Simulated assay, not measured.
Amino acid sequence: MSQELPRALSRGDLVALVSPASWSSEEWIETSTAVLECWGLRVRCGVHADDRLGYLAGRDEDRLADLNAAIRDPEVRAVITLRGGCGSSRLLAGVDVDALAKDPKPLVGYSDITALHRLWHMAGVPSLHGAVAGEHAEIVRDILYGGTPAPVRADPTQFGAELTTGGRAVGKLFGGNLEMLARSVGVLDFDMRGHVLLLEINKLAGLGNVDRALTQLLMSGALDGVVGVALGWLTGFEDYEDRGWTILDVLRDRLGTLDVPLLAGLPFGHDSNPRVAPLNVPCTLDADDGILTLAAALR
């Protein structure tokens, strides 16, 4: 779906804080609100943003209501998720994608929020894989205010950087958490043709789970037409081995079947301070020079 870029935010604009997955502490809600207000934005918390039901931020219907209220409100110019965890996938069938396509606005979040990034991708709307608090928060602010992200350089000293091949790929960037991408197969339409695939892999997923997720994406055809792979840090896997194989063996075996340029050692990862990656925007992956160049996500 072709879509005009969302309008860049201006001081005084309203943003919505929502909890579509697991619940956050009151302290984190206050911290996120304070950061956004320091950026000159007005903040509205979802009615159910601090609800709790087991590991979920309240009932599915209430989390969905908050998300759709933010999407449908023309005054809201960005949707900020408070945390990932678990639960975003439960909402997929009810999200008002038509309203999002008519009034595009960016989504900010990562981890479990990858499920919702898929919907933004389907609507043709850019989103930000990252968080508004943490050491990279200023990058989020700059992107939301219409800035073009600085080129991201891979670290050749990072574990896993040796997976880098050579070559250059141009296309739109899309991806996120590997497990969540795989679990959306069969739930949402998945078309990655002409895209550079961004992958961040959680250490909680052992080698077998990484293998299963990549195999599902490959065998389902979800990765047909991918033109390049941008691989984040493999934090936690450094000393992990399973019957003679490491994460590097699994990734070589599975991603190697794509036969496309791969750039590893990029500072995207599954931790509390992920580097921000705008999704569904044009990018250039240069595996020879070790640089990922990204276009602006808002106009």
Results as ranks from 00 to 15, higher is better:
A297P: 03
R252P: 08
G146L: 04
V125W: 05
G94N: 06
G176S: 05
R72P: 01
D103G: 14
V281Y: 01
D239A: 12
R243G: 04
S220L: 05
H117L: 05
I291C: 07
N202H: 10
N209M: 11
L41Q: 07
D103Q: 13
G40I: 02
D286N: 05
L41M: 09
A133R: 13
W120P: 04
G265W: 07
G147K: 13
H117N: 11
G225L: 10
H121T: 03
L53Q: 15
F174A: 13
I201F: 02
I80L: 12
E241H: 14
P267Q: 12
D259H: 11
G256R: 15
M122E: 14
R254W: 00
L17R: 03
L128C: 01
L279R: 03
G206F: 00
K102I: 00
N273D: 15
R299M: 11
S2G: 01
E179L: 13
A70F: 04
L91C: 09
G176L: 00
G109Q: 07
L214D: 06
C86A: 08
R183D: 08
Q3N: 14
Q216D: 08
A264H: 03
G256V: 13
A296V: 03
L279D: 02
G134P: 08
G85R: 03
L119Q: 08
V187S: 06
N68K: 08
W233F: 12
E37L: 10
E30G: 14
L223E: 03
V196M: 09
L188N: 10
L181F: 01
M219H: 11
T293D: 12
T215C: 07
P278M: 00
V132G: 09
D189Y: 01
R44L: 06
L234T: 00
A131R: 12
L251F: 07
A161S: 15
G269F: 00
T33E: 13
L279F: 00
E138L: 14
L56N: 04
R183Y: 13
E135I: 15
F159S: 02
Q216A: 03
T165S: 15
V152K: 04
T293R: 13
L262P: 06
R193M: 06
S88M: 10
G134E: 10
D96Q: 09
Q216G: 07
V281D: 02
V132N: 11
P104D: 02
V140G: 09
G167E: 11
A213Y: 07
G46E: 02
K102E: 12
Y110N: 00
G175M: 04
V229Y: 06
E4A: 14
D66A: 05
P104W: 01
D239H: 11
I139N: 10
L116F: 11
D51T: 10
A222F: 01
L298Q: 01
G124D: 06
T293W: 05
S32N: 14
S2F: 00
R52P: 09
R212C: 06
K203N: 03
L197C: 11
S220F: 02
L218G: 02
L119C: 07
A154P: 08
F174T: 12
